[in-house]
């Protein structure tokens, strides 16, 4: 039995080692090396890459990444909770609505982000329509700012909030809501005193599933944020491409990972775990 288990687990373990452990070890090693003359890495070993991260310039980027991810997560929660509740109470149409939530995944995220550019840019669909209708004289600056990045993130990661919330809400015993009303609670009070507390594990799971990828995003911020709103993900990307400073990119990505891991542990300790 044990031998069978080992044999069945071996391929996945090998894959995990090759794609997670080994690259991580390499990145870790790189982060303590010096920049090579033509990209890549070289001697000597140094911790200078990490001290560079303490520069207020990078602190600001990290801070912006955190609040953009946090705001996106909160908006996802504010939009996702009512949506999940609605779907959970839709009876026979549940599965239809759920597939609509998942439907965007059938198209590449890159293409969907380009679609947002097409909608938001100065000569885009929205501005063109508003201009020709005479509602505005100048195009609204909707692209290349923090708002556009947050919009793109909320759009992209909303399903990751809706699905765990739905899973909890769907299993919630309807007689609990009736009991609350029976004991004198108005609908609003039932929401805050019964439904939301019982959804805590789903909220935690959804928040982690949205916050962590938002924190490391580079595609959305690159396309919708432009060069003005650089996030930590873009910083890492730039070091490995145009800046050709792999050791510093490695240090920045490890710092991001450490921060995200710390947050995850904090979230797990703040209640019973779900993930």
């Amino acid at each position: 039995m044990n031998r069978l288990r080992a044999r069945l687990l071996a391929p996945a373990a090998a894959l995990a080692f090759l794609t997670v452990v080994a690259p991580l070890a390499i990145i870790c090693l790189y982060s303590f090396m010096s920049r090579g003359a033509y990209g890549g890495v070289g001697q000597p070993f140094t911790s200078e890459n990490y001290t560079r991260l303490l520069d207020p310039l990078y602190g600001a980027i990290l801070w912006r990444s955190f609040w953009v991810a946090a705001v996106s997560t909160l908006i996802c929660l504010a939009l996702g909770f009512p949506l999940a509740l609605f779907i959970a109470r839709s009876g026979e149409k549940k599965n239809l609505y759920l597939s609509l939530v998942i439907l965007p995944f059938w198209t590449s995220f890159l293409i969907r982000t380009y679609a947002w550019m097409f909608l938001l840019r100065d000569t885009g669909l929205i501005n063109t329509a508003l201009l020709s209708a005479g509602i505005i004289r100048e195009p609204l600056p909707m692209l290349y700012n923090n708002g556009a990045v947050i919009l793109g993130l909320v759009y992209g990661f909303l399903p990751f909030m809706v699905l765990p919330l739905y899973a909890i809400l769907e299993r919630l015993d309807p007689s609990l809501m009736e009991a609350a009303a029976d004991l004198g609670a108005r609908p609003r009070e039932t929401l805050f005193r019964v439904i939301l507390p019982l959804c805590a594990p789903g909220i935690r799971a959804g928040a982690i599933l949205v916050f962590v990828p938002c924190l490391g995003t580079y595609l959305t911020s690159d396309l919708l944020g432009g060069s003005k709103t650089i996030l930590i993900g873009n910083l890492v990307q730039n070091q490995f491409t145009s800046a050709r400073d792999w050791p510093f990119g490695a240090a920045a990505s490890l710092a991001l990972m450490a921060a995200a891991t710390l947050l995850l542990f904090a979230a797990r300790r703040s209640g019973e775990e779900l993930l």
Partner: peptide, 19 residues
């Protein structure tokens, strides 16, 4: 609505708040 009636219910499955 139920919250404005001075009657209270003991549910079949009791419906106690688990939290």
């Amino acid at each position: 609505p139920p919250y404005r009636r001075n009657v209270n219910t003991v549910f079949q499955n009791y419906a106690l708040f688990p939290h």
